[in-house]
């Protein structure tokens, strides 16, 4: 076992922060993704054009540039709006909130594409049948569309999750104490950066491997009753 020179607990703290960040951003991105996917498919231009613009533009810009834009730009924006709303003190953006919102916002665009594809994969006649039974639009969504689109969404969703997890390493650049940042600090103090970055790389590998196992299990669970082709 490689020695972490007493920095094990701080790396572990960083790991916990990374996991929290991943899960919180996942929730944000799924929420944005489903709304955007529905907006794209709504057939109303007022909704579908902004949704299209969101998914196209976000997917064309590097995560890091967006993160810096939201972190630094958001800081300036809030402090311009603050005085207008009668708040005079300088407001510091919490890097954790900046991290979650940026990653959630970026992956919302990727999730939207996945969910859109999954929604389109559910046969139209199923929804029609639901409506023929007198279900409201929300009932059709919850009872008919959602349970069936999950199966189609899982592969794309899993991919997005794996990319999202790796993207959280970027928050170390805006000063969040995630495990990459912790490894940097520990590596600087002990002059053994390789050891610590390698440890973090292996933690990422473990997280990725667990995710893949869970995703495969989910995929099997939701594919029950369907013939494999």
């Amino acid at each position: 076992m490689l020695s972490l020179h007493g920095y094990g607990p701080s790396i572990l703290q960083g790991t916990i922060l990374t996991i929290e960040l991943c899960l919180a951003s996942l929730v944000v991105s799924m929420f944005l993704g489903i709304i955007t996917a529905l907006a794209k498919l709504s057939g109303t231009r007022v909704l579908s054009v902004p949704a299209q613009a969101y998914t196209t533009v976000i997917r064309g810009i590097p995560d890091l540039v967006l993160m810096l834009l939201i972190f630094y730009g958001g800081q300036v924006l809030i402090n311009q709006i603050g005085p207008m709303a009668g708040y005079d003190e300088y407001i510091d953006i919490n890097p954790f909130v900046a991290g979650i919102s940026t990653i959630g916002f970026i992956f919302g665009a990727y999730m939207a594409e996945t969910f859109r594809g999954a929604i389109l994969a559910v046969p139209e006649s199923q929804l029609e049948a639901g409506r023929a039974y007198g279900m409201s639009r929300i009932q059709v969504f919850i009872r008919v569309l959602l349970p069936q689109m999950v199966r189609h969404a899982i592969p794309g969703f899993g991919n997005n999750w794996l990319v999202l997890m790796k993207a959280t390493a970027l928050v170390s650049i805006i000063g969040l104490k995630d495990m990459v940042r912790m490894a940097g600090l520990a590596g600087g103090a002990t002059r053994k950066p390789f050891t610590f970055y390698m440890a973090v790389a292996f933690i990422y590998l473990i997280l990725t491997s667990i995710s893949i196992l869970v995703l495969n299990w989910l995929n099997d669970k939701y594919s029950v009753g369907f013939v494999k082709d």
Binding site: K166, V180, P193, F194
Partner: peptide, 19 residues
């Protein structure tokens, strides 16, 4: 494919100096 590119870059840029 399972680790962030940032970590890989740090491993090479900062890490190699350890040896």
């Amino acid at each position: 494919r399972g680790t962030p590119l940032l970590v890989q870059m740090f491993l090479i840029y900062y890490g190699t100096g350890q040896f």
